[in-house]
């Protein structure tokens, strides 16, 4: 069997560089996920409002996010808006903006779905016990909503982490880009590095996402 090219990983600081690239990807997704969850809860609650205009606005927002490929959004924000509006956006900030824009919409839709799936009788029986609006949401509706939400939102979170691999297209040096650089630099000495290094990248993504989806399965079982 041919050499798999994993040895390149242990040359110089290659492995550390790869890990720092991974941290860039994780940092972008972590910040975006936190923003998405917080604002998604608000947007989701607003989506259930009876206000027609609000409903239409969020509908359009959600459709845009669903239809538009994330890479196009990244390009518009990073290459497009910076020129047109003359502002100076860092690539990482652009990435966080785009990922949050996407995450808030999808998270909002998940929250909306979870909220409307709580039967009306839950609100009414809480009211009948003399609870006011805040108490009903805090003690009765929110805990049930979050339970329904967690498996769904974890799926969204892992999708967001995986999609950060796109940000190298706007010049961010994240794990995939570092991998490419390492492979390029060692093209002559280890032509097989493409296999070994990308396999390691795959493994790194797996190590991040797998515990998260395991957690979701665990929570789902515990609360079913």
């Amino acid at each position: 069997m041919q050499n798999l090219g994993i040895d390149v990983l242990f040359k110089g600081t290659n492995f550390v560089r790869l890990l720092s690239g991974l941290w860039v990807a994780v940092r972008i997704s972590l910040i975006s996920v936190i923003i998405s969850i917080v604002l998604g809860l608000v947007v989701g609650a607003l989506m259930t409002s009876k206000n027609r205009i609000l409903k239409v606005i969020f509908r359009i927002y959600l459709e845009i996010v669903r239809i538009m490929p994330q890479m196009v959004l990244l390009f518009i924000v990073y290459f497009g808006t910076t020129r047109v509006f003359g502002w100076n956006l860092e690539a990482e900030v652009s990435a966080i903006l785009v990922f949050s824009f996407w995450g808030i919409a999808e998270m909002g839709d998940l929250v909306r779905g979870a909220l409307i799936s709580i039967p009306k009788i839950q609100y009414e029986s809480a009211m009948a016990l003399g609870m006011d609006g805040k108490q009903i949401y805090y003690h009765v509706i929110l805990p049930q909503t979050i339970r329904r939400l967690i498996p769904l939102s974890i799926n969204l979170i892992t999708r967001m982490i995986k999609t950060t691999s796109l940000v190298m297209m706007i010049g961010i040096v994240e794990v995939l880009k570092v991998a490419q650089q390492i492979i390029e630099a060692n093209r002559r000495s280890s032509p097989n590095a493409a296999f070994g290094i990308f396999a390691v990248v795959f493994l790194l993504y797996f190590l991040i996402c797998w515990p998260i989806s395991k957690l979701s399965v665990y929570l789902e079982k515990r609360w079913s």
């Binding site: 039967p119 009788i121 839950q122 009414e124 029986s125 809480a126 009948a128 003690h139 009765v140 805990p143 049930q144 339970r147 609360w223």
Partner: peptide, 12 residues
């Protein structure tokens, strides 16, 4: 106090 037809306990 009110008790409804459908079981309305808080499931969580």
């Amino acid at each position: 106090g009110m008790v409804f037809q459908s079981y309305d306990l808080f499931p969580h």
